[in-house]
Amino acid sequence: MLKFLLKSGKKLEIDIAPIETGLALYRAILIECKGAGLDLTVAEDDTILSLLLKNKEACLNVLSSENVLEAIKDCCAKVVYDKQRFTMDVFNKIENRKDFFPTMMLVAIENIRPFFEEPHIILDNIQSQFLN
């Protein structure tokens, strides 16, 4: 189980979903990136922000995708936010909503990460934006 402390001070616990569920998420993201002109070349002076801006169309496609959101939710069966099992109702509370996107992002990153070899510099950098 992976444990994170979000910027709000709430604790997030993530168990990696079974391979079929993780793979479905990975494929949902790839489908959204397809045709968006993904550019993953990294120049010496590139930053995470410049990389994201270079691929802003793909990023917006992924962030706005209903299929990606559903695939992430499928990975949340064993996710615990603030000692509560993950449901959309938990984030219905106004004070919890600021943790919704960080939670989704962390669940997505942790479920995709095992498919690739170390190092995960880009994933680690994105992840650090959401942690305390």
């Binding site: 189980m1 615990v80 509560q84 099992r85």
Partner: peptide
Amino acid sequence: AQDTLQITDFQGSFTLSD
């Protein structure tokens, strides 16, 4: 199933969901 049930065994902690 609404409650949060976690177990720590020889492999570490996990959240029950099945």
